[in-house]
Design a binder for these strands. Structure first.
Length: 817
RNA sequence: GCGGAUGUGGUGAAAUUGGUAGACACGCCAGAUUUAGGUUCUGGUGCCGCAAGGUAUGGGAGUUCGAGUCUCCCCAUCCGCACCA
């Protein structure tokens, strides 16, 4: 801020001193103001109880080797615009940034090159930081956090121990996709048609011990508490569907001397049960194998199923199965004996892994019954069960005491009956499964647990946190598919904190969703080495007021972090039961041809190139103008040029600014209209139309021979959130020695924005035949008369009788003839 | 199959409670200035038509003085979940 307009000198002279640089030199301008912001710590924020706080958050990136993608700035700019505007409106704004730095790419890079993930990650973070800074975001960089920093993951580990202490973290055997050739567990995405993506070997399912976190205990609350949150609807419905709550009943069927329990959402159809089906993995299959008459057949089917991946199993919806011959179940409602099958259409992970089959009223059961020629008994009126199952409501028939009832009455009566007779109970089930929390990987948070022969799994004492990642000889998973940490030598040996005996450390690490589950809390108090964040900072900053991120995280990060936060709330560690008040989502940025940008397609656009060629302001503004924020948008170099021209126009417009000119009525109308529109549209994330309001205003200004300073000043204030560098520059040229980012947001006046005259469209039977210009709020009679005088209207009305005239004040006249 | 979204000029897209469809841009056309190079400025631009006029928001019905907007049916594209009992 070298220059200052003292108000005494002639403004025209003052302006001339700037005119040496006539072309819009964004490189110089942007560098200059970025340095000034940094020197002045313009975006540093501290608790200020005199101000209302506003916490804006964007999803922190994984610092990949590819650098920043043009998709990142779409979200970051959007919330930067919102944060900057809120700041100008007097809020104390926290807008932080950090890095979600644990992850597979760094590890794969290490396997290939031997470079330690910490080193490559650090380099990538430096690149990202440079790129983010070049775009002029108003992040408080003093609060930057990195999840792979031991000072950070210390608390991730600490929280894991809390989960363990509360009984929510537990070790369990679950089935995973296993490649017997690579000897490694695969993610579902790595299994192609039942074969290993890498070596082509057939993938089998294998039980493996994994750390689990009991997110299902929070299933109900994760649904219920959505009601009060300002999340976009598709996020809410997606989470609700994912959690998949269904109400129904558990019913016990006699099976030999044992009890076979099923879950059903339709206990009222129990009189229509003609057989039962177990998942091939159901414990009864092994337990009673010796009593089946066809054990070989059963075993063969179980084995065949085990070979299939989940993917294969769901791809093929033809019905197969084997009857468990020699044992029958008994329907507790009717007393009838019914056959029992195993079939892979029944899943082991949902409900009890067994079903009662009602082929008349469930299409899957119907298909199975057709294949195995089983009886189909209709118990609800409606449909044509010779064609397909009837799954709608209807009066009960063939159903004993339920006859005549509809679905709702029948459900209640059936459950009551089952409860009274001790063979059933109401039950709610969820599709949501507990969270598999271990990964056989190196580059993640070590799980702070040790195993003692005598005491079992024990958390390490808090004083030993952080448990840092040890060096390992190489980063490959070993033959048993264990984490590279299993090769960490001495590191593995620990003492049991309970008995002091020998213990061995857990070698699996946490998934990369761990660190991101609570990072927004750390931003409140990033340097605290006593707590993950102090109560005072959490009380002041939480909740996040506005969180923007990708739809792809709806049922992952967003759900996990809501759960994690609720758990901390239950522990009394955070002040609120939900972390985010508002959640919005941005669309993707696609290549010019509508394809995804990807390295393999070679259509990736590097933000650095755009910033170098057109400047950060143009880039930011273009990403806001590109299209509706929540929808996918195609990159277009030509449209970018349009925005570049606009920015240049704002710059050159300064030459027309005259300091002692008073704006006239029309000027004020245009100005206030623009203020009102931009203000409202930013709040609604309608950035594309906010920008078009600015363009309309600029078109108005550039049509004038001279521009009153007030008009230009307002333009600069309105543009400051979008193009902060240009705004600072022009603000200085207007003679101010303050930072525009700290200025007050202009106040729009709806009265002044109003037009004095309005144009009516004159319609005959709904078709526009002309227009009339009248003063605002003209009398109805005058409007009618004026409309009838329009020459074209008179001609059209010749020989017709006017039956009715509808006048919509200040809008339209419709003559019905 | 279920769930969610989308469908408007040559292109990206706008459009309070139903009230002049196409704002704002891109592209294109014409002209001016300039002309060492993605310049700037002015005007035009949904489609058919010389015009008057007609016609137009995926298709079809309906409600209404009036429908991109509301109701019903259908079609297409994209995304998510996918045998969840």
């Amino acid at each position: 801020m070298s220059k200052k307009f003292d108000g005494k000198a002639d403004f025209a002279e003052w302006k001339k001193s700037w005119a040496l640089e006539e072309r819009y030199n964004f490189k110089k301008i942007e560098k200059k103001w970025q340095e000034i912001w940094e020197d002045e710590k313009a975006y540093k924020v501290e608790i200020d109880k005199n101000k209302e706080k506003f916490y804006a958050l964007v999803e922190f990136p994984y610092p990949s080797g590819a650098g920043l993608h043009v998709g990142h700035p779409r979200s970051y700019t959007a919330l930067d615009v919102i944060a900057r505007k809120k700041r100008m409106q007097g809020f104390n704004v926290l807008y932080p940034m950090g890095f979600d730095a644990f992850g597979l790419p760094a590890e794969n890079y290490a396997i290939k090159t031997g470079v330690h993930p910490a080193i490559s990650t650090k380099a990538n973070i430096e690149t990202f930081t440079r790129q983010l800074k070049s775009l002029g975001f108003s992040f408080d960089w003093d609060r930057c956090i990195t999840t792979c920093d031991p000072e950070y993951y210390k608390w991730t580990q600490w929280m894991f121990i809390k989960f363990f202490e509360k009984g929510l973290a537990y070790k369990d055997k679950i089935a995973i996709n296993w490649c017997p050739s690579c000897k490694v567990g695969l993610a579902n995405e790595e299994v192609v048609n039942g074969h290993c993506e890498r070596c082509g070997a057939e993938v089998v399912r294998r039980d493996k011990e994994q750390w689990m976190i009991a997110i299902t205990k929070y299933a109900d609350r994760l649904i219920e508490d959505l009601a009060d949150l300002d999340f976009i609807d598709r996020v809410k419905t997606q989470q609700i569907n994912w959690i998949g709550r269904s109400e129904g009943a558990e019913l016990d069927f006699a099976f030999g001397d044992d009890k076979l329990t099923v879950f059903t959402t339709r206990p009222d159809t129990a009189f229509g049960v003609t057989y039962m089906v177990l998942a091939p993995e159901h414990e009864f299959v092994q337990k009673y194998m010796s009593r089946f008459e066809n054990p070989d057949e059963v075993k063969a089917y179980v084995e065949a199923t085990a070979k299939k991946s989940d993917l294969q199993r769901t791809m093929d919806d033809s019905k197969t199965g084997v009857e468990l011959k020699g044992m029958k179940a008994k329907n507790p409602f009717t007393g009838t004996e019914i056959p029992v099958f195993i079939s892979d259409y029944v899943l082991t992970g949902y409900g009890t892994g067994a079903i009662m089959a009602v082929p008349a009223h469930d299409q899957r059961d119907y298909d199975f019954a057709k294949v195995f020629k089983l009886p189909i008994v209709q118990v609800l009126e409606g449909g044509d069960i010779s064609e397909k199952a009837w799954e709608e409501d209807g009066a009960h028939i063939n159903s004993g005491f339920l006859n005549g009832m509809n679905k709702e009455q029948g459900m209640k009566a059936a459950i009551d009956y089952a409860v009274k007779n001790g063979f059933g109970r109401a039950k709610v089930n969820f599709k949501l499964r507990d969270w598999v929390f271990s990964r056989q990987r190196y580059w993640g948070e070590p799980i702070p647990m040790v195993y003692c022969e005598h005491c079992g799994w024990q958390p390490i004492p808090e004083s030993e946190l952080p448990l840092t990642l040890p060096p390992v000889p190489d980063y490959h998973p070993n033959d048993e598919g264990e984490s590279p940490l299993s090769k960490a030598g001495d590191w593995l040996n620990a003492t049991c904190p309970k008995c002091g005996g020998k213990a061995r450390r857990e070698t699996d690490t946490m998934p990369n969703w761990a660190g991101s589950s609570w990072y927004f809390l750390r931003y409140c108090d990033p340097h605290n080495d006593k707590e993950f964040a102090s109560k005072e900072t959490l009380d002041y900053w939480m909740n996040v007021d506005w969180y923007n991120g990708g739809m792809e995280h709806t049922t992952l990060h967003l759900l996990y972090s809501r759960f994690w936060h609720k758990f901390l709330y239950d522990c009394g560690l955070v002040p609120t039961k939900e972390p985010y008040n508002k959640r919005t989502s941005h669309g993707m940025i696609l290549a010019e041809n509508g394809e995804k940008m990807s390295k393999s397609r070679g259509n990736v656009i590097n933000p650095d190139d755009i910033v170098n060629a057109y400047g950060a302001d143009t880039f930011r503004l273009y990403e806001m103008f590109i299209g509706p924020f929540d929808q996918a948008a195609m990159w277009s170099d030509e449209s970018l040029m349009g925005v570049y021209r606009f920015v240049g126009k704002v710059y050159t417009l300064f030459a027309k600014v005259v300091s002692d000119l008073k704006p006239d009525e029309a000027d004020l109308r245009a100005m206030h209209k623009c203020i009102l529109e931009v203000t409202e549209r930013i709040d609604q994330m309608k950035f594309n139309t906010a920008v078009s309001s600015l363009m309309t205003y600029v078109n108005y200004l550039s049509s004038k021979p001279q521009i009153a300073a007030e008009l230009y000043r307002t333009l600069i204030l309105l543009m400051a959130p979008f193009t902060p560098h240009l705004a600072e520059e022009m603000w200085a040229r207007l003679g101010y020695d303050t930072l525009v980012v700290k200025e007050k947001w202009p106040q729009g006046d709806a009265k002044l924005a109003e037009d004095t005259n309005v144009t009516y469209a004159v319609q005959i039977c709904g078709k526009v035949r002309g227009t009339i210009e009248l003063p605002k709020n003209a009398l109805r009679e005058d409007v009618e008369q004026a409309a009838l005088q329009v020459p074209n209207v008179r001609r059209q009305l010749e020989g017709k009788e006017v039956r009715k005239i509808i006048v919509v004040p200040n809008k339209i006249v419709n003559i019905v003839a």
